[in-house]
């Protein structure tokens, strides 16, 4: 581990500690990546806003059937997110690999993923755009994102009762649902703090429960660092879709007990070194 004078300590999976006087060689066109990252942030905000406040409302006006409207809105957002990731890769700011993405998007499928970076959702919804998603309630108030999340019919994570029932309804209607059980980004260096909602929803209504393990090397866009602390080399996201989890094994106990067991097992799966490099 290299140590330099630091303001903030970042003990991420990469083991790098960032400093103003970086002892680590900056590669992959660091300064261009920095500018690029900033620009992509601006583009992302702008496009999200425009899609949410112009495109989705137009879809709403033109499509009377609610489920078709929802599908179209999500397809548009998904396309936007895919374009964003591909653009970020094409300009050399990021790299990524998504293993097993064809396993996502099944009816009644609950997809659970860990949440190391800010843009995890872009990969997941970008490549499984028909899915609904449980989203931080604050996004429904944020001016940039609210048009998009409301138009796509995503589900706010509070109040608890409404979230659970809305998630249940979505799965029962045959949608794919994406949840980040941690509820927020992982704090690097700390264990995953998953909440029980995902396990509960899975046992209530999921036909299939599928984990996705996400890692980013070197770490970036994590909870403890500002966006401009980009890593010395190009960050690469690796997403691996895991095997479906057998829910039948949990159905022999009352829901509160079963969901605690499933929650514990899920936490174990994700804590077990999120083995992305096989």
């Amino acid at each position: 581990m290299m140590r330099g004078r630091t303001d903030r300590l970042h003990a991420g999976a990469s083991g790098f500690i960032y400093s103003e006087l970086s002892a680590v060689k900056r590669t992959d066109y660091y300064w261009l990546r920095l500018v690029g990252t900033g620009l992509w942030f601006l583009v992302f905000g702008l496009v999200t806003f425009v899609l949410g406040f112009l495109v989705l409302p137009v879809i709403r006006l033109l499509t009377w059937d609610r489920s078709r409207r929802r599908r179209r809105s999500r397809a548009v957002l998904g396309a936007g997110m895919r374009a964003f990731i591909h653009g970020a890769r094409g300009t050399g700011c990021i790299d990524f690999e998504f293993i097993g993405r064809e396993k996502l998007g099944r009816p009644g499928q609950l997809v659970v993923a860990n949440h190391p970076t800010l843009i995890d959702v872009c990969f997941l919804l970008g490549f499984a755009p028909t899915a609904s998603c449980i989203v931080k309630a604050s996004h429904f108030r944020n001016l940039i994102t609210r048009g998009a999340v409301i138009g796509a019919g995503y589900i706010p994570n509070a109040p608890t009762e409404e979230m659970i029932h809305a998630a249940e309804a979505a799965l029962q209607q045959g949608e794919t649902l994406l949840m980040f059980p941690e509820g927020t980004r992982t704090v690097p260096g700390k264990p995953l703090a998953m909440q029980r909602g995902a396990a509960n929803v899975a046992l209530r209504a999921a036909r299939v429960l599928t984990p996705v393990y996400i890692s980013c090397e070197p770490s970036t866009l994590s909870k403890n660092l500002p966006w401009y602390r980009i890593p010395p080399s190009r960050p690469k996201w690796t997403l691996r879709v895991g095997d479906d989890i057998d829910l039948e094994a949990y159905r022999d106990a009352p829901l509160p007990i079963a969901s605690r067991r499933l929650h514990s097992d899920l936490a174990g799966l994700f804590a077990g070194g999120t083995p992305v490099r096989d």
Partner: peptide
Amino acid sequence: EIDSIDAVDLI
């Protein structure tokens, strides 16, 4: 030790 998620199940 019954939390908000349990409360939904209970209700």
